[in-house]
């Protein structure tokens, strides 16, 4: 690098990532704890359950990822599956007719 200034690479540090993990867990915990102090008006029966939205988010997203992973086994193909020429060399003008 020509620039002598040190690059901003905070997110690459292990300690930063650890801190972010902690923050994530704490925020998740706080959102659930906060429900103790509010009064909700559920429209259906099921959403009256304590921390319903947290459970929905957790289970729903897990199922979606697992579902996608499972479908990926059937649906994923090599990039050149359709036999189209991959433009390997970077064109001078990435935007086609821009210039």
């Amino acid at each position: 690098m020509k620039n002598p200034k040190k690059e901003f690479d905070w997110f690459d540090h292990k300690s930063s990532r650890k801190l972010l993990w902690w923050l994530l867990w704490i925020t998740c915990g706080l959102t659930v704890v906060a429900e103790l102090f509010i009064h909700r008006h559920p429209h259906f029966d099921i959403d009256g359950i304590f921390s319903f939205y947290a459970i929905t988010g957790f289970i729903g997203c897990s199922l979606m990822i697992l579902g996608a992973k499972g479908l990926g086994l059937i649906l994923k193909r090599d990039e050149n599956y359709y036999g189209e020429e991959e433009e390997t060399s970077l064109p001078k003008d990435i935007d086609g007719d821009a210039q």
């Binding site: 959102t31 909700r40 319903f52 939205y53 459970i55 988010g57 997203c61």
Partner: peptide
């Protein structure tokens, strides 16, 4: 306030799932 709390629950737990998975 309830809507803010429930929405944040939904989103933060989704974020958690993303990084766990």
């Amino acid at each position: 306030v309830p809507h803010l709390v429930t929405q944040m629950q939904l989103l933060m737990l989704s974020a958690l799932v993303f990084f766990l998975f």
